[in-house]
Design a protein around this nucleic acid. Structure first.
Lengths: 104, 104
DNA sequence: TTCTAACATTCGAATATTCTTATATGAAAA
DNA sequence: TTTTCATATAAGAATATTCGAATGTTAGAA
């Protein structure tokens, strides 16, 4: 590894890998992964997800907020309901697919 | 989504997604990602990594221990040195590649 | 054997994450 | 307008993560 590649690594540590790590941290929770899975074929409102995963409503809302603040999910209002969906399905699902391929 | 698929999601929450999340949590740190990058073309000893990433030796050792305990890296002894390498390069690098493809 | 280089481990403080409980908000039904 | 349903937010305790500082370990050089 030459000097230029070394410089590169240090910059990536502060830049690219910092960004990647932030994103991975958002995904690194079983409930959030399950939410992404639940949304892979369309839209779900909060009560749907709550019933599906058998987790308390405030907890689901908190996880949805984390995903939303990181641009992973978004919602549309439908009366009293909020219909959540994946912002960029191919991105989040690509990670899930890669994990599926490489982990037992 | 039918009832069988719903049951499936709950089981995955305790099983598959728990495993995935554990793995992602290990990767979700900029220094650990940079270590994986540094090892992608071969072997590095601790002092190599320390100098490369400009991080303290104990801290590098701590991160290497986390990666090692999760089966992501391993080492061979060479005198006083420990030569670290990726246990399963294709797996860890696949995640990095997917992130590279989908994140800006 | 003593010293030193290379690395690991321990401890503790600072910080971050997670979940539960309680409460707030806002849309629509009554 | 009052109530209710769907969801969000806040507060706080429990737990986990992270890093620096100090110390331990071990292989080989001197």
């Amino acid at each position: 590894m030459n000097n230029q590649e070394k410089e590169h690594l240090i910059k990536d540590l502060e830049g690219k890998y910092h960004t990647y790590a932030e994103y991975l941290k958002v995904l690194a929770h079983p409930i959030r992964l399950a939410i992404i899975d639940a949304l892979k074929e369309g839209t779900c409102c909060v009560s749907d997800v709550t019933e599906l995963l058998q987790v308390s409503q405030p907890n689901i809302s908190q996880h949805l907020a984390i995903l939303r603040l990181h641009g992973i999910v978004e919602y549309e209002e439908d009366g009293k309901k909020r219909c959540y969906s994946l912002c960029n399905p191919s991105s989040s699902l690509a990670i899930l697919a890669t994990l599926g391929k490489h982990l037992s």
